[in-house]
Design a protein around this nucleic acid. Structure first.
Lengths: 189, 189
DNA sequence: TCTGTTTGCCTAAAGCTATTAGGCAAATTA
DNA sequence: TAATTTGCCTAATAGCTTTAGGCAAACAGA
């Protein structure tokens, strides 16, 4: 019987594709096995568990997202950089909803430490260099931007803004204007 | 054999408690049946499906959250109101993490329409009355605040801020200062 | 090329969850 | 008290997860 040529990388990638097609919570060892025309038990040579598979997809997504972020930030500063990074998150969530959902998976401490999570915080900090904030305000601002990016994208993806006018595109632009203004005029304690 | 006295309300409430104890994604028909010392099949007289159960818990959480919000906003305006509502979300997530997670469940359109979701948007709008924003900026600001509240609470609950200094309490206060400042000086288009 | 080893996928099996169908006894109503 | 409704049960099917052990394909060395 010919072999399917499975390995951890391919499974992770296929799992990410599956997530984008059917949703991250529908990513299952069985479904992935079906996609390779292989029995579910066979995947356990390459992946420790269902949880392990999902964690790997999450790490992949975080990495991809960080790569896109780095590329977008190169050569930009100030509001330009802010908008660029914000758009990376938003576009990624739209293009790859399953992967984006995966990136929100709560990781165990070891995985989190090995993840691209640090790069994300670092990118946000890089943006703030254009706004001349000093510690601890810089950290507060990093957290505020992180909260906002994550929250906005989650709500938009979840359809939270879908019915109401005005459209989300206009809101998005005006929000970035507002955040830029806030960072330029960050209030003293 | 004595009856357990199940009904949809009790199951929903017990499901919410279970969610707070073991996590919303661990809320299962079987686990709930176990908690009532009853067979899983018995729950299907009161609940249409596992999905139905989860939806009911989500609706309960949205309702409780809206009730707390209304109570907190009564008699407050401006920054006072802003902080009060923000704290409602944050405290609820801390006290009832499972319910809070449930409130993030993506609802089908009918359930969403019947949910307290509208009350939440209305509360945020009420806060903005103290900041004299006109449409469409008011809507943009509603969405920004919604994104921020949701994003911050999600990240804090997920441990996103856990390792780094300064502590989240200080960040929280300074973020609310910043949002208040932003709303008072909302930038023109 | 043959041989031995590793590796990869398979079958088998047990355990858990979801869900449906049909039954009997408890609670309610007349 | 009799009739009816209702509530929980047993039984059964189906899917996902995971472990154990087997056989054949791929590979390494002589």
């Amino acid at each position: 019987m010919a072999r399917a040529g499975l390995n951890t990388e391919r499974l992770t990638l296929a799992g990410a594709e599956l997530a984008d097609e059917v949703g991250f919570d529908q990513v299952t060892v069985s479904a992935l096995a079906r996609r390779f025309d292989v029995k579910a038990a066979s995947l356990y040579s390459h992946v420790r568990s269902s949880r392990d598979l999902r964690t790997r997809i999450a790490l992949l997504a975080l990495e991809e997202l960080a790569d896109r972020g780095s590329a977008a930030l190169a050569g930009r500063a100030g509001k330009d950089a802010l908008a660029a990074l914000a758009n990376v998150y938003r576009d990624y969530a739209r293009e790859c909803p399953g992967r984006y959902a995966a990136a929100q998976l709560r990781l165990d401490p070891e995985s989190a430490a090995a993840s691209a999570g640090g790069r994300h915080a670092e990118m946000t900090r890089a943006i703030l260099r254009g706004y001349h904030l000093t510690e601890p305000d810089q950290t507060h601002a990093v957290r505020l931007l992180g909260s906002f990016f994550h929250g906005y994208v989650s709500l938009e993806m979840g359809g939270g803004f879908s019915h109401s006018a005005p459209d989300t595109e206009e809101t998005w632009v005006r929000m970035l204007d507002a955040l830029d203004a806030l960072l330029r005029n960050w209030p003293a304690p």
